[in-house]
Nucleic acid binder design. Structure first.
Length: 260
DNA sequence: TAGGCCATCTGGTCCT
DNA sequence: AGGACCAGATGGCCTA
Protein backbone atom coordinates (compact mmCIF):
# COMPACT_ATOMS: atom_id res chain seq x y z
CA UNK A 1 0.00 0.00 0.00
CA UNK A 2 1.14 3.43 0.69
CA UNK A 3 4.63 3.24 1.96
CA UNK A 4 5.24 6.93 2.22
CA UNK A 5 6.49 6.84 5.74
CA UNK A 6 10.14 6.87 5.14
CA UNK A 7 9.86 5.15 1.85
CA UNK A 8 11.16 6.22 -1.46
CA UNK A 9 7.88 7.57 -2.65
CA UNK A 10 7.62 11.19 -1.93
CA UNK A 11 4.17 12.61 -1.85
CA UNK A 12 5.37 15.51 -3.84
CA UNK A 13 8.38 15.27 -6.03
CA UNK A 14 10.37 18.33 -6.68
CA UNK A 15 8.75 20.31 -9.39
CA UNK A 16 11.95 21.46 -10.90
CA UNK A 17 13.13 17.91 -10.94
CA UNK A 18 10.00 16.95 -12.74
CA UNK A 19 10.66 19.53 -15.37
CA UNK A 20 14.12 18.16 -15.71
CA UNK A 21 12.69 14.75 -16.40
CA UNK A 22 10.82 15.81 -19.42
CA UNK A 23 13.36 14.45 -21.81
CA UNK A 24 14.91 11.68 -19.84
CA UNK A 25 12.29 9.24 -18.71
CA UNK A 26 14.06 8.32 -15.55
CA UNK A 27 12.76 5.93 -12.95
CA UNK A 28 9.89 8.15 -12.11
CA UNK A 29 6.33 7.06 -11.68
CA UNK A 30 5.21 8.13 -15.06
CA UNK A 31 7.18 7.98 -18.19
CA UNK A 32 7.02 11.67 -18.59
CA UNK A 33 8.71 11.89 -21.94
CA UNK A 34 6.60 9.20 -23.40
CA UNK A 35 3.35 10.51 -22.08
CA UNK A 36 4.16 14.05 -22.91
CA UNK A 37 5.07 13.39 -26.46
CA UNK A 38 2.10 11.17 -26.86
CA UNK A 39 -0.38 13.51 -25.35
CA UNK A 40 1.11 16.61 -26.74
CA UNK A 41 1.02 15.26 -30.22
CA UNK A 42 -2.53 14.20 -29.64
CA UNK A 43 -3.32 17.57 -28.20
CA UNK A 44 -1.76 19.35 -31.07
CA UNK A 45 -3.87 17.40 -33.42
CA UNK A 46 -7.11 17.49 -31.51
CA UNK A 47 -7.17 20.80 -29.80
CA UNK A 48 -3.97 22.64 -29.34
CA UNK A 49 -3.23 25.00 -32.09
CA UNK A 50 -6.56 24.59 -33.70
CA UNK A 51 -8.56 27.55 -34.67
CA UNK A 52 -11.78 25.74 -35.24
CA UNK A 53 -14.58 27.56 -33.40
CA UNK A 54 -16.21 24.34 -32.31
CA UNK A 55 -13.33 23.57 -30.03
CA UNK A 56 -13.90 25.46 -26.83
CA UNK A 57 -11.55 25.93 -23.97
CA UNK A 58 -8.28 27.59 -23.40
CA UNK A 59 -6.59 26.07 -26.37
CA UNK A 60 -8.53 28.02 -28.88
CA UNK A 61 -5.28 29.71 -29.53
CA UNK A 62 -4.28 31.92 -32.32
CA UNK A 63 -3.16 30.04 -35.32
CA UNK A 64 0.42 29.18 -35.93
CA UNK A 65 1.31 27.97 -32.50
CA UNK A 66 4.47 26.08 -32.87
CA UNK A 67 5.01 22.65 -31.47
CA UNK A 68 7.54 24.04 -29.07
CA UNK A 69 5.17 26.68 -27.78
CA UNK A 70 2.52 24.06 -27.27
CA UNK A 71 4.94 21.95 -25.35
CA UNK A 72 6.03 24.89 -23.22
CA UNK A 73 2.42 25.68 -22.44
CA UNK A 74 1.69 22.09 -21.62
CA UNK A 75 4.66 21.94 -19.31
CA UNK A 76 3.59 25.12 -17.64
CA UNK A 77 0.10 23.81 -17.05
CA UNK A 78 1.41 20.50 -15.83
CA UNK A 79 3.70 22.28 -13.44
CA UNK A 80 0.86 24.27 -11.99
CA UNK A 81 -1.16 21.15 -11.55
CA UNK A 82 1.71 19.43 -9.84
CA UNK A 83 2.12 22.37 -7.53
CA UNK A 84 -1.55 22.35 -6.78
CA UNK A 85 -1.50 18.70 -5.93
CA UNK A 86 1.67 19.23 -3.95
CA UNK A 87 -0.06 21.88 -1.88
CA UNK A 88 -3.00 19.59 -1.43
CA UNK A 89 -0.71 16.87 -0.15
CA UNK A 90 0.95 19.29 2.23
CA UNK A 91 -2.44 20.16 3.60
CA UNK A 92 -3.18 16.49 3.92
CA UNK A 93 0.07 15.99 5.79
CA UNK A 94 -0.85 18.83 8.08
CA UNK A 95 -4.13 17.16 8.76
CA UNK A 96 -2.41 13.88 9.51
CA UNK A 97 -0.16 15.62 11.98
CA UNK A 98 -3.05 16.74 14.13
CA UNK A 99 -4.90 13.48 13.95
CA UNK A 100 -4.83 11.15 16.95
CA UNK A 101 -3.04 8.23 15.53
CA UNK A 102 0.43 6.86 15.91
CA UNK A 103 3.07 8.83 14.10
CA UNK A 104 6.47 7.51 13.37
CA UNK A 105 8.71 5.88 10.84
CA UNK A 106 7.44 2.44 11.68
CA UNK A 107 3.84 3.43 11.27
CA UNK A 108 2.30 3.51 7.89
CA UNK A 109 0.97 6.86 6.89
CA UNK A 110 -2.76 7.20 6.68
CA UNK A 111 -4.13 7.14 3.21
CA UNK A 112 -5.91 10.22 2.01
CA UNK A 113 -9.34 8.76 2.34
CA UNK A 114 -8.52 7.37 5.74
CA UNK A 115 -7.23 10.75 6.82
CA UNK A 116 -10.40 12.47 5.77
CA UNK A 117 -12.66 9.91 7.38
CA UNK A 118 -10.66 9.94 10.57
CA UNK A 119 -10.68 13.71 10.64
CA UNK A 120 -14.41 13.76 10.30
CA UNK A 121 -14.89 11.29 13.10
CA UNK A 122 -12.43 13.13 15.24
CA UNK A 123 -14.24 16.41 14.79
CA UNK A 124 -17.52 14.77 15.60
CA UNK A 125 -16.05 13.24 18.71
CA UNK A 126 -14.54 16.51 19.86
CA UNK A 127 -17.79 18.29 19.27
CA UNK A 128 -19.63 15.69 21.26
CA UNK A 129 -17.11 15.85 24.06
CA UNK A 130 -17.26 19.59 24.15
CA UNK A 131 -21.00 19.59 24.38
CA UNK A 132 -20.84 17.11 27.19
CA UNK A 133 -18.23 19.10 29.01
CA UNK A 134 -20.21 22.28 28.71
CA UNK A 135 -23.27 20.53 29.93
CA UNK A 136 -21.46 19.27 32.99
CA UNK A 137 -20.06 22.69 33.70
CA UNK A 138 -23.55 24.02 33.53
CA UNK A 139 -24.72 21.43 36.01
CA UNK A 140 -22.01 22.16 38.49
CA UNK A 141 -22.07 25.91 38.40
CA UNK A 142 -25.71 26.28 37.70
CA UNK A 143 -25.76 29.00 35.20
CA UNK A 144 -22.31 28.47 33.96
CA UNK A 145 -19.76 30.49 35.85
CA UNK A 146 -17.24 30.30 33.12
CA UNK A 147 -14.41 31.59 35.23
CA UNK A 148 -14.30 28.12 36.69
CA UNK A 149 -13.66 26.78 33.26
CA UNK A 150 -10.06 27.77 33.46
CA UNK A 151 -7.17 26.21 35.22
CA UNK A 152 -4.63 27.77 37.45
CA UNK A 153 -2.05 27.80 34.72
CA UNK A 154 -4.20 30.12 32.77
CA UNK A 155 -1.94 33.09 33.23
CA UNK A 156 0.95 31.36 31.58
CA UNK A 157 -1.31 30.34 28.74
CA UNK A 158 -2.74 33.68 28.00
CA UNK A 159 -5.81 33.35 30.16
CA UNK A 160 -4.58 35.90 32.66
CA UNK A 161 -7.83 37.79 32.60
CA UNK A 162 -9.61 34.93 34.28
CA UNK A 163 -9.00 34.53 37.98
CA UNK A 164 -9.26 30.82 38.72
CA UNK A 165 -11.34 29.67 41.59
CA UNK A 166 -9.41 27.70 44.17
CA UNK A 167 -11.09 24.47 43.23
CA UNK A 168 -11.17 25.20 39.58
CA UNK A 169 -8.18 23.20 38.40
CA UNK A 170 -9.29 19.94 39.90
CA UNK A 171 -12.82 20.39 38.73
CA UNK A 172 -11.63 21.48 35.40
CA UNK A 173 -9.46 18.47 34.78
CA UNK A 174 -12.04 16.15 36.13
CA UNK A 175 -14.43 17.49 33.61
CA UNK A 176 -11.86 17.18 30.96
CA UNK A 177 -11.32 13.57 31.79
CA UNK A 178 -14.99 12.95 31.65
CA UNK A 179 -15.28 14.67 28.40
CA UNK A 180 -12.52 12.66 26.90
CA UNK A 181 -14.04 9.48 28.09
CA UNK A 182 -16.95 8.20 26.05
CA UNK A 183 -19.70 10.73 26.60
CA UNK A 184 -22.29 9.55 29.04
CA UNK A 185 -25.17 11.05 30.90
CA UNK A 186 -23.48 10.43 34.18
CA UNK A 187 -23.33 12.98 36.93
CA UNK A 188 -20.29 15.04 37.72
CA UNK A 189 -19.23 12.52 40.32
CA UNK A 190 -18.82 9.85 37.75
CA UNK A 191 -16.18 11.80 35.95
CA UNK A 192 -14.05 12.48 38.97
CA UNK A 193 -10.35 12.76 38.51
CA UNK A 194 -9.11 10.20 36.08
CA UNK A 195 -5.38 10.20 35.79
CA UNK A 196 -4.22 12.41 33.01
CA UNK A 197 -1.89 9.71 31.86
CA UNK A 198 -4.84 7.50 31.21
CA UNK A 199 -6.21 9.75 28.56
CA UNK A 200 -6.20 7.98 25.30
CA UNK A 201 -7.27 8.71 21.83
CA UNK A 202 -10.65 7.25 21.08
CA UNK A 203 -10.00 3.75 19.92
CA UNK A 204 -13.09 3.86 17.84
CA UNK A 205 -11.41 6.35 15.59
CA UNK A 206 -8.73 3.98 14.58
CA UNK A 207 -9.08 0.35 13.78
CA UNK A 208 -5.37 -0.28 13.40
CA UNK A 209 -2.80 0.14 14.68
CA UNK A 210 -3.33 0.55 18.44
CA UNK A 211 -3.40 4.20 19.23
CA UNK A 212 -0.94 5.87 21.53
CA UNK A 213 -1.91 8.79 23.73
CA UNK A 214 -3.21 11.70 21.82
CA UNK A 215 -0.62 13.51 19.83
CA UNK A 216 -2.25 16.59 18.54
CA UNK A 217 0.51 18.04 16.49
CA UNK A 218 3.75 19.63 17.48
CA UNK A 219 2.04 22.44 19.28
CA UNK A 220 0.54 20.14 21.85
CA UNK A 221 3.57 18.73 23.56
CA UNK A 222 2.06 19.26 26.97
CA UNK A 223 -0.70 16.78 26.34
CA UNK A 224 0.56 13.65 28.02
CA UNK A 225 0.72 14.30 31.73
CA UNK A 226 1.81 17.87 31.35
CA UNK A 227 0.13 20.82 32.91
CA UNK A 228 -2.99 21.58 31.00
CA UNK A 229 -4.50 19.41 28.34
CA UNK A 230 -7.75 21.30 28.35
CA UNK A 231 -9.55 22.21 25.20
CA UNK A 232 -8.89 25.88 25.72
CA UNK A 233 -5.19 25.49 26.35
CA UNK A 234 -5.05 23.18 23.40
CA UNK A 235 -5.75 25.89 20.91
CA UNK A 236 -3.37 25.07 18.11
CA UNK A 237 -0.43 27.36 17.52
CA UNK A 238 -0.66 29.53 14.45
CA UNK A 239 1.61 27.32 12.38
CA UNK A 240 -0.46 24.25 12.99
CA UNK A 241 -3.78 25.97 13.25
CA UNK A 242 -6.37 24.48 11.02
CA UNK A 243 -9.50 26.48 10.43
CA UNK A 244 -12.14 24.65 12.35
CA UNK A 245 -15.74 25.49 11.84
CA UNK A 246 -17.35 22.80 13.87
CA UNK A 247 -20.19 24.04 15.93
CA UNK A 248 -18.61 22.93 19.14
CA UNK A 249 -15.47 24.90 18.71
CA UNK A 250 -17.37 27.83 17.41
CA UNK A 251 -19.42 27.86 20.52
CA UNK A 252 -16.35 27.52 22.65
CA UNK A 253 -14.91 30.60 21.06
CA UNK A 254 -18.13 32.39 21.70
CA UNK A 255 -18.01 31.37 25.32
CA UNK A 256 -14.50 32.61 25.70
CA UNK A 257 -15.54 35.89 24.21
CA UNK A 258 -18.40 36.12 26.60
CA UNK A 259 -16.09 35.61 29.55
CA UNK A 260 -14.13 38.73 28.81
C1' DT B 1 -1.13 -11.57 -9.23
C1' DA B 2 -4.92 -8.62 -7.83
C1' DG B 3 -6.09 -4.70 -5.55
C1' DG B 4 -5.12 -0.36 -3.22
C1' DC B 5 -2.93 3.93 -3.32
C1' DC B 6 -0.59 7.38 -5.45
C1' DA B 7 1.55 10.93 -8.85
C1' DT B 8 1.09 12.77 -13.08
C1' DC B 9 -0.93 14.29 -17.39
C1' DT B 10 -4.78 15.97 -19.69
C1' DG B 11 -8.96 18.37 -21.24
C1' DG B 12 -13.02 20.64 -19.70
C1' DT B 13 -15.30 24.13 -16.92
C1' DC B 14 -15.62 28.07 -14.13
C1' DC B 15 -13.91 32.30 -12.28
C1' DT B 16 -11.28 36.66 -12.14
C1' DA C 1 -6.55 35.24 -21.36
C1' DG C 2 -4.88 32.95 -17.64
C1' DG C 3 -5.34 30.43 -13.51
C1' DA C 4 -7.81 27.26 -10.34
C1' DC C 5 -10.36 23.31 -9.89
C1' DC C 6 -12.00 18.92 -11.23
C1' DA C 7 -12.40 14.23 -12.97
C1' DG C 8 -10.78 10.60 -16.03
C1' DA C 9 -6.92 7.97 -17.71
C1' DT C 10 -2.54 5.91 -17.13
C1' DG C 11 1.17 3.64 -15.09
C1' DG C 12 4.28 2.70 -11.01
C1' DC C 13 4.90 0.87 -6.38
C1' DC C 14 3.62 -1.92 -2.60
C1' DT C 15 1.18 -5.43 0.08
C1' DA C 16 -1.68 -9.47 0.95
Amino acid sequence: MNSDSGSSRSSSPDVDDMYARKSSSSSGQTDFAKMSSEHLSRGAGAGLGRTSPDVGGKYKLKKQVTEEEIQQLRLKINGRERKRMHDLNLAMDGLREVMPYAHGPSVRKLSKIATLLLARNYILMLTSSLDEMKRLVGEIYGGGHHAAFHCGAAASHGHAAHAPLPAAPAVHHALLGGALAPPTASSALSVALPALGSIRAPQSLMKTPPTPPLQIGTGFQHWAGLPCPCAICQVPPPAAHVPITSTGLTRLSADKEAMK
